[in-house]
Design a protein around this nucleic acid. Structure first.
Length: 340
DNA sequence: AACACAAGCAACCGCATTTGT
DNA sequence: GACAAATGCGGTTGCTTGTGT
């Protein structure tokens, strides 16, 4: 049985905002009926949207002007989209929320055909889902905030750039049961306190799910894990001493995914005004002489992993860091890795 | 089949801002 | 400029629907 309602909706209840209690007591509340919708649409067709209180007085609708406006804006406004959010729209919401916060109306202006209400609902659903799953929120203030450089120095023995471009020695050392790395895929080797399904590198910015881990080298405790490089880790490392711009690495991954799908013009056109810092950094990085190259199909949406290839000259090999992979014991991960 | 619970979404409420007089 | 009404916005509620037991 559902819990007792805190406040039952009643047709005689006093609604908020504007009109007197006497007037409000006559107003109908709750879900709109098809008949009411027809009256509303017909009135707006004849007289246009706006003057909602006049509409309420002249149309015969027993609804407040506010209620009429809300019903129109959220359901009958021209060019409203009815389908679910696309991955592009979802990404835009994440990015814009990171920049603008809970300013739903501002966010909605960047998503034609979408209402602030549905964006707000989408966000709240997303947040609740992540809470239930025990996942962190996207915004930086919800994470431990440290400059990336110091994180790397403390936590990693090798991280991009230079990424560890697998040499033939590494490639040939992979057991046949493991998915094969291609020549141009980048990996990192990091200390890893544990193995199995719950591995985490315990970095504020990077929490690698198991599918990003290709396997482990035993160099003596602790074990070292080999991971595919997320786009953001490749990308952000080129910022030098700069801190990560607003947004988590996952957020940057999502944005790079958008660029991969729709081209860099998309972010220039739609996001430049809202998140200039992040967009500027991306534009700078992607147009610099030693530009990074997004490989086609680097992003696997289902697993959330991807590849981002550095300038070939910036990549070092296992030999260059003196790692003799032939002497290492290779232990496959529990879960197979999806490759593309 | 009946019930309990969770999730998603439409609508409400109160406050802030804008517009009209 | 002062005031009132209209409109817009964001937080919240509670209804509907789906799923598990």
């Amino acid at each position: 049985m559902r819990p007792p309602l805190k406040k039952e909706r009643a047709s005689t209840a006093v609604a908020g905002g504007g009109a007197s209690a006497t007037t409000q007591q006559l107003q109908k509340r709750g879900p709109w009926t098809p008949a009411e919708d027809t009256i509303l649409k017909e009135y707006v067709r004849k007289h246009g949207a706006g003057n909602w209180n006049v509409l309420q007085k002249n149309s015969g609708l027993q609804r407040t002007g506010k209620s009429c406006r809300l019903r129109w804006v959220n359901n009958f406004r021209p060019n409203l989209k009815k389908e679910s959010f696309s991955p592009y729209e979802e990404t835009l919401i994440l990015l814009l929320h990171d920049e603008l916060g809970n300013r739903w109306a501002q966010i909605a202006k960047h998503l034609p055909g979408r209402t602030d209400n549905e964006i707000k609902n989408y966000w709240n659903t997303l947040i609740n889902r992540r809470k239930r799953a025990g996942l962190p929120m996207y915004r930086l203030e919800n994470q431990q905030h440290m400059p990336l450089k110091s994180q790397r120095q403390e936590q990693c023995i090798a991280i991009s750039p230079p990424a560890l471009k697998p040499s033939q020695a590494i490639l040939s050392s992979l057991p046949s049961a493991m998915p094969q790395l291609s020549e141009n895929q980048c990996v990192s080797i990091r200390q890893c306190p544990n193995r199995g399904n719950n591995i985490s590198f315990q970095l504020p910015y990077f929490t690698y799910p198991v599918e990003n881990c290709l396997g482990y080298f035993d160099l003596g405790p602790p074990p070292y894990a080999v991971t595919k490089e997320l786009p953001s880790s490749q990308f952000s490392s080129n910022f030098g001493d700069e801190q990560m711009p607003q947004g988590s690495s996952r957020l940057l991954d999502d944005l790079l995914h958008v660029i991969d799908l729709y081209g860099i013009e998309v972010i220039e056109e739609t996001l430049k005004a809202d998140i200039p810092t992040l967009v500027d950094l991306i534009l700078r990085e992607t147009t610099a002489p030693t530009s990074l190259t997004v490989l086609p199909g680097w992003y696997n949406h289902s697993s959330g992993v991807g590849e981002f290839l550095n300038d070939p000259m910036a990549v070092i090999t296992d030999k260059e860091i003196g790692l003799d992979v032939q002497q290492l014991e290779w232990i496959p991960t529990v879960a197979p890795v999806e490759f593309y």
